[in-house]
Design a binder for these strands. Structure first.
Lengths: 201, 201
DNA sequence: TAGATTGTTAATCGATTAACAATC
DNA sequence: TAGATTGTTAATCGATTAACAATC
């Protein structure tokens, strides 16, 4: 369910603010999701609310982390250390939420062998050789044709890719590719903004 | 409808490959959406297919562009010219799809007054002063508290924001904020990947 | 015309939500 | 206990899709 990350983010923020417990209508206001939907979502996993009392924020956080399957220690590799890749490294460690980028690969000789933001950059030729054990996820932040890399990653045991390419990629069987398409997002935004403008007239 | 950008992207790619017409089952294979759904989506806008023949690719593209409300000429401003901002400028002009980033703002004295990837960077203090007319959209790629900027953008006439911050932002009334949350995406990916792994066992 | 593929109707499916009984 | 809020049932809503009639 695509709302759990939203809840988790909000709860973490609330917890940092010292909020200990929260009622579904309060959380509703915060994340802009109906309180009924929130309660239903929560109850799908189990019962951790108390009637007339609400939910314990920290308890909820740890349960969600468990359910989302993250032990905070996913090892993620980064393919492509250009501007975008470096931006991602900037907020690496992901607020200690899921895990971290543990190494990076590129084709640029000026980058290979260096440490960028504390992360080793290897040649993409060494992908299979250097790849850490127990690594399931990759972030793809390259330009140009991504398909060959995707296929190689699949061979190397990667099962999930976060893709920042704006290429058309065939997902190999048994592999999940989540694409972040900036252009598509802007198009949607233009579309919705125009709708609003029309309403004003 | 969130699928139009997907169609548009695929059609543009096909057109570039010289494909002149396409059948709904072919397109289905390409974008991984059932052919019935595609035909239904298309028919919501109008009838531009021919039975026993298919759809004219270029015709479809121009119709979609019209419907999505883009004249290819949206003026977009960029707030924040760090790594991420520069990465966005790298593929500015968005393949001539929606418009382009026309200017950028930052607080870094080393950037202000310069041209980055051909785009002028101004001080954020000059936001209201420099902002171009007919500008509706902004891309937010800063660190730290974004809310004050969002409120200022609203005052300055911006109605849509593409937000790369990982902050919690209240959207002012009448404003659309589309957030690209890398962490949430990775979390979903972790979640789905773990589901796959469990199935394997 | 015959063949093929669209556009649309009607059925299905899943997700959201209102209402309320359970319970802290 | 009384009050409040959760968890869940049942109804609603919208989106997807199968099936097929319209039509190029």
């Amino acid at each position: 369910m695509q709302r759990y990350p939203i809840y988790l983010k909000a709860l973490r923020k609330l917890s940092a603010q010292g909020v200990k417990r929260i009622l579904s209508p309060q959380l509703s206001e915060y994340v802009n999701i109906p309180s009924t939907t929130i309660r239903r979502d929560f109850s799908l996993i189990g019962r951790f609310g108390k009637q007339g009392y609400g939910y314990d924020v920290d308890n909820l956080i740890s349960i969600f982390n468990e359910v989302l399957g993250t032990g905070f220690d996913e090892k993620i590799i980064l393919i492509g250390v250009g501007n975008l890749g470096q931006a991602l490294l900037n907020y690496n460690r992901w607020d200690y939420v899921v895990g971290e980028i543990v190494m990076a690969f590129d084709i640029d000789p000026n980058l290979i062998g260096k440490k960028i933001k504390g992360i080793d950059v290897y040649s993409i030729d060494q992908l299979e050789e250097k790849m850490p054990a127990e690594c399931n996820l990759a972030i793809l932040a390259i330009n140009g044709d991504a398909q060959p890399i995707v296929d190689r990653l699949k061979e190397a045991g990667i099962i999930g890719i976060l893709d920042f390419t704006h290429m058309h990629i065939r997902a190999p069987k048994g592999m999940i590719i989540k694409s972040v398409d900036v252009i598509a997002n802007i198009q949607e935004l233009v579309f919705e903004a125009n709708t609003i403008k029309k309403f004003k007239d």
